[in-house]
Amino acid sequence: MIPDDLLYSASHEWARIDGQEALVGITDFAQCQLGDITFIELPSAGDGVAQGREIGSIESVKAATELNSPVTGTVLEVNEELDGAPEKINRDPYGAGWMIRVKLSETPRELLTSEQYKVLAECRE
């Protein structure tokens, strides 16, 4: 399932925009491709992030890959629960598996709607 209230990057991250803030995570398609997630490295509160730039990494039983930010701004909060339980990303990528909350410094550009992302991800729901 691809929620309609989110925007998506081509690198399979999502952003839930609420005013001047965004909650960020990876998509269900991404977590499915990775398999069981075993470790995640995220920026710290106060760090700056830039749209399309690396913000950390994620490791699974299948692969390790970089995480990119779908937005530009300052990290307000990091989901600390992922430190001891990265599998929350597998179980609930759009809920409990969120990664960072960002105060936006500019409007995100070139993100995909849910309909556009469905075509990119070729989801098999």
Rank of each mutant, 00 (worst) to 15 (best):
G95F: 11
C32G: 15
K88V: 02
S44K: 15
G84A: 09
L23A: 10
E81V: 02
R101V: 00
K103P: 09
L82D: 06
L104T: 05
E77L: 03
A85S: 14
D36V: 12
G95K: 12
F39M: 09
L23S: 09
A63P: 00
E122N: 15
G46Q: 13
A63I: 11
Y117Q: 04
V78Q: 06
A63M: 10
D83H: 09
L112A: 03
S60F: 00
L23T: 14
G25Y: 01
G25T: 04
H12V: 00
A85H: 14
D5Y: 11
E66D: 13
L6Q: 06
V119C: 06
E41P: 03
G52I: 01
E122M: 15
Q51T: 01
E66P: 01
E106I: 15
K118A: 15
I40K: 05
L82C: 01
M99A: 01
I55T: 03
L23C: 09
A15I: 00
K118M: 13
A121W: 04
E77T: 08
F39R: 09
L6K: 00
S105K: 13
E59H: 03
A63R: 12
T65R: 09
S114P: 02
G19P: 11
T72M: 13
E110Q: 11
M1G: 07
L82M: 06
G52V: 06
D18N: 12
R109W: 06
L23V: 14
G56F: 07
L23E: 13
R91P: 02
L120E: 15
I58E: 06
T65V: 10
D28T: 01
A22K: 08
E66R: 11
Q51E: 10
Q20F: 03
S44G: 10
R53V: 10
G73T: 05
P86N: 08
M99D: 04
W14V: 00
V24K: 00
G56P: 02
R101H: 02
I58N: 03
L42M: 13
G46Y: 12
E54T: 15
F39P: 06
E115K: 12
P3M: 10
P86T: 00
A22Q: 03
V102R: 02
D28Y: 09
S11F: 07
L76S: 08
G56M: 08
L6D: 07
Q31Y: 07
Y94Q: 05
D18L: 08
F29S: 01
D28V: 05
G35V: 04
G73V: 10
E54Y: 11
G25R: 09
I40D: 02
L112K: 08
S69A: 13
G35I: 02
D83S: 08
G19R: 12
N90I: 08
V75L: 06
Y94H: 11
T74S: 13
C123L: 14
I2L: 14
G52T: 07
